[in-house]
Design a protein around this nucleic acid. Structure first.
Lengths: 351, 351
DNA sequence: ATGAAAGCGCTAACAC
DNA sequence: GTGTTAGCGCTTTCAT
């Protein structure tokens, strides 16, 4: 032992039987005490608790789960942990699950379908009580596994599609449309798009589709676009903004639509530094409503992805269904508000 | 079924026996095939795989783990997921574990010792192959559990203390001392401190102690301090900076030391907005080296907490020890570099 | 190369 | 209120 923590070094991990012997109470009753189940007299209860504490017994959930075929785990499968959106979803999930027996277990897919399939397989092999998974697009095998698992499955973030069981999210197509409409209403015409180089980010794709759809209806097109991958989003936003503005100096752009707020913030900082008049000369908008935007000198127009709410609702659906396995799936579509901030001209909508 | 995913709805979850019956191969051999263990003829192997795929069989790890008393899980216990530092640690852990059989399972403590104890208990009850846990300070019960668990335990982030088994991190005391020295060397005298209101953030506390220690040795003291809790760190940094500067207008501060880079960035944005000459009139420094700083107009002086490296090293220690349970604990102290950025005057150190 | 039997540590179900 | 018995679905061990 490298230091002063004094403990009973356990060769063989302790079992219920050890507690049973130490307390002189049957294994079954020990089990009851440790799970607060069934009637146990105060006296034996204390004897057991005392013995367990004394020995430092930690129950073996593996054995418990096998015997009871109940596993209080919820598989949460998300693309990434590094872009601020999923940590917040997790917070929402945690908030709700903390008040239940359920415990989230997180798997990361890095936006790769085959990775998602593998992670899902791993997680399902622990026989969780439910699955919360980002997105509606999965490999065929993954969809089949979830459908066959016989547990509640909630697909989150997006509701533009066909859920396996339940879904909670926003319509990203609608989000793209709404932003396009706001930009058009404000009178901008020469619009640039800056986004991630991620063909597999279906939600970004749907927003883009909704966006261009409304532009088209109004006789407009995206004038230029710029993509990035990897690196610090703030830095990339700055660089991409410089690039796209320089490339269009002859016929300048009057609006930049960023596929996320982090690159949007980078763009905003760049504009402020260069003394570009925002929103007069150039309008800006992002997507996500990251809280961090509040700290910027001026607020970026954006649309909240309602991450916290999505996490909470998804967890609630799972919690409900665990106690009511017969329950049917449901789809909850949340409707985010457009936050105009200070980077979008406030122009009256033409009649 | 709410939609078009065609699957075999499984009433009773499939078992090895189902695959055995479907393939006409004994359960034991099926098990061998599915785990790639022992010699199995190519013919039976294919029969089994075919049957398993056909049925959509997902092995039950609960049963497997109980029978083999081997669980390929690594418990990762961290205070929070929302402040950018731990996601990066996770990335490092994942990178390494991806190349092994091991899988991380994350628990969040919210900086509460009693929560940490509870989470640890939960995790240990799954009999993981190892534990990675943030910090060296735990409740007595938590320390005892880890010491008695008979598995490798790596305490991360901090090495100023007494590890249970292994530790990987930096010396936060040294980090505080180094930053203080750099500030003093640059000639700043009237130093303010801005931090989190978190008595249980031992690492912040140690940095602070190291910091004031060096100031004291040089006949200096912190002139004023300001604390926050909750909210957007960027916003809070901005507000706190305003507050502390205003409060000391009579005898102005010439340096602000922020306990993390996010509030530091907020302070920096505030200064730029107000036209405060940084680093001439006022120097600034933070802590953590978050990549995001690169996107700011000028770079904040900071010290990298080496999160990625810590995560990787911790995971490596676990991976190594799982295959060598006799191995002894080890302590790895990483030494971060001070990044002066552009918010600290470059003044020659007085001879 | 394959199979049969025993049991991992716990809990459901049923006594008493 | 407490104890007994029989598994949960796998893997270990030992035969063959």
């Amino acid at each position: 032992m490298p230091n002063g923590h004094d403990t009973i070094p356990a060769k063989r991990p302790l079992t219920l039987r050890d507690v049973s012997e130490a307390s002189g109470v049957s294994e079954m009753t020990v089990s009851r005490v440790l799970r607060n189940r069934g009637d146990v007299s105060e006296a034996t209860r204390n004897k057991v608790l005392e013995a367990a504490r004394e020995l430092g017994y930690v129950p073996n959930k593996i054995a418990g789960a096998l015997a009871s075929s109940r596993v209080n785990l919820v598989a949460v499968i998300i693309p990434s942990m590094s872009n601020m959106v999923f940590p917040e979803v997790m917070t929402g999930i945690n908030e709700v699950l903390e008040n239940t027996e359920l415990q989230p277990v997180v798997g990361i897919t890095n936006y790769k379908p085959e990775r998602e399939e593998a992670v899902l397989y791993q997680m399902l092999s622990w026989r969780p009580s439910g699955v919360i998974i980002a997105g509606l697009e999965h490999t065929e095998a993954a969809s089949a596994m979830m459908a066959a698992a016989g547990i509640p499955v909630v697909e989150i973030m997006d509701t533009d599609g066909d859920p396996i069981d339940s879904a909670v999210g926003i319509s990203h197509r609608r989000a793209g449309r709404a932003m396009a409409q706001a930009i058009i209403d404000a009178g901008y015409k020469r619009i640039g798009f800056l986004g991630t180089k991620m063909p597999l980010d279906h939600r970004a794709r749907k927003r883009f589709e909704g966006f261009t759809e409304v532009l088209a209806k109004n006789g407009l097109e995206i004038v230029d676009r710029e993509f990035y991958s990897g690196g610090s989003a703030l830095t990339k936003g700055r660089e991409m903004t410089e690039t796209i503005l320089k490339r269009n100096e002859d016929e300048p752009l009057d609006f930049l639509y960023f596929s996320n707020d982090m690159i949007g913030a980078g763009g905003l900082l760049y504009c402020m530094e260069k003394g570009i008049d925002v929103p007069g000369q150039l309008g800006l908008a992002g997507f996500n409503g990251i809280e961090f935007l509040d700290g910027l000198p001026i607020k970026l127009a954006t649309m909240d992805a309602m991450r916290l709410e999505i996490g909470r609702t998804a967890a609630e659906i799972i919690a409900k269904r665990v106690n009511d396995p017969q329950g049917a799936g449901e789809t909850v579509t949340l409707t985010p508000e457009l936050a105009l901030g200070q980077t979008l001209k406030k122009v009256k909508k033409p009649l």
